[in-house]
Amino acid sequence: MTRRRAPTTRRAALLALPAVVPIVLVVGVSLTAAALQSFGLMPFIGPPQFSADAWTRDADELVRSTLTSTYVAMVSTLLSLVVGFVLATYVLAIPRMGRIVEALSAATIPIPHVIGAGAIGLLLSDSGFLERLLGMPEAFPALVSGPWFVAVIAEYAWKESAFVALVVLGSISRSVGDLCDAAATLGASAGQRIVRVVLPLSAPSLAVSAAIVFVYTLGSYEAAWLLGPTSPEPLPVRAVRLFTSVDLAARQQAMATALVSVAVSAAVIIIAILVLRRHRSLS
């Protein structure tokens, strides 16, 4: 294979340019501008003046927002992985019903998150569809805008579990059948086959989708804004509130908040890449 690759390196580099240049430009300009604004070097009015004020003022709130966002993203990712894996195994194990589940699950992929959030709101809010179905019990918990972000997490888990199932099915459906047959002839039970064959096979795709889901839920605005409580605020809600604030000085803080969420996301992606590489070198 190396024989084929060596002379084509330069051509391959040219191939990469159309994709690499727009990304580098957009991301580079965007991060630079955000950083400059967060340090007061691009004010609306008056001369640019360096100040780290946006980073230090209300630093504890910034930390709390970061923790809140991390909590929401972690729980959502975990739930999405579990439900997504169950979906995928069900589709693999049960032929006819599995196909229906697969089709329905794939059908939720095109639903934008903003609509998903509206739908979950209608379902879970006070006097929402679920409470009405249950006959309006007095003790109905505060799911929408409650302290634990239940509705927000439900929306992410609902949308992203379908995504996880799609990725897992796409990566293992070809190889898993033969291996499971082999395991079955060797006397493995259904549970053993899932734990010993399906789970290890899907581990890499689970890891990749975990990173994607985590980063997506960390940076997603619509659901957190529509379904979250007044306080504490996740990072995107805080950033957009400050960005659209009528207080001119708030935009610096908005940029600082945006950069914090970029940093957290980048850290998670790097961890995921390291874990994947470790996994690959072990196997």
Binding site: T32, M42, I45
Partner: peptide, 12 residues
């Protein structure tokens, strides 16, 4: 990076 600076630095 230079382009970004040029585009964004001068302001007001």
């Amino acid at each position: 990076a230079i382009l970004a600076l040029g585009l964004t630095a001068c302001s007001g």
